[in-house]
Amino acid sequence: MKTIEFINVTKRYDDLLAIDKVNFTIQAGELFGLLGPNGAGKSTLLSMLCGIVNIDKGDIKVGGYSIKKNPKQVKRAIGYVPQELAIFENLSLRDNLDYFAGMYHLKGKSKKERIEEALALTGLQERHKDKVKKLSGGMKRRLNIACAILHHPEVLIMDEPTVGIDPQSRNHILAFTNQLNKQNGTTIIYTSHYMEEIQSLCDKLLILDEGREIINGTKEEILRSVIDETTLKIRVVNKKPEIIQRIRGLKDVVEAFFEEDNVKVIVKSRDYKIEDVLMILRESGSQIINMTIEQPNLETVFLSLTGRQLRD
């Protein structure tokens, strides 16, 4: 199993610093998310890992092999799913898989088996004879992935694999990505600018913006390190001013205030007791209409760290 190390990786396109001294490590078997807005440098970073784009400074090592010095060893270990569709529209699904399997040095019986396996995993068996141009966008995306897993790569790099597709295909892709990681132990690097995908799929992640590493760690670590607070938003009828003082007096409550018809209570994420707040409201004679708990998410983390939203 291969560990992937990014060591002071820097890339410049003329005046634009696309990647600026990025350092992080991905452990073998991890499902690692790379999050950032469009143009953050995610694709450039992955292109350098795949040996498509040269590294200006620093290095990337996969299982100890440097992409600069031992590109063949690195390339043999990886499967790459580009952001754009990397398939032949005029050929059938099977012909596409057959071509890439040949490029991965597969032949004979093993090639046939791998093609069947990839078709099964991506749910495309029934359409294997169809020309790619007849497929829906979601199916093309799945074929795009199938072409990258034929040689059983130890590391699968998926660059925005769900861009512009229907929810059904997206769910399918997320499900088999998870399956590849959990069942086969494939290390997966998954990039997206959809925060929800990364949050639901990945164990560890790195947030990138304008070519720079913003934060790196497990989901929980990132959320806690930036925002250790949860907001309770309680809509009430018959609100009385004294309840704010009483709520503020509770343990682990950071702040409480009225906002229109709501009582907003900011509490410490780990230790708050919601029963205490509700009891105060009931004792004061306020009637609770509904209540929401606003958990911090990666969107708020990114907002907090960069002052911008992910989809800006």
Binding site: R76, I78, Y80, P82, A86, I87
Partner: peptide, 12 residues
């Protein structure tokens, strides 16, 4: 333009 070459360049 459809990134097939990118994929090929990621192969050894």
């Amino acid at each position: 333009e459809s990134a097939v070459l990118c994929r090929l360049f990621s192969i050894d």
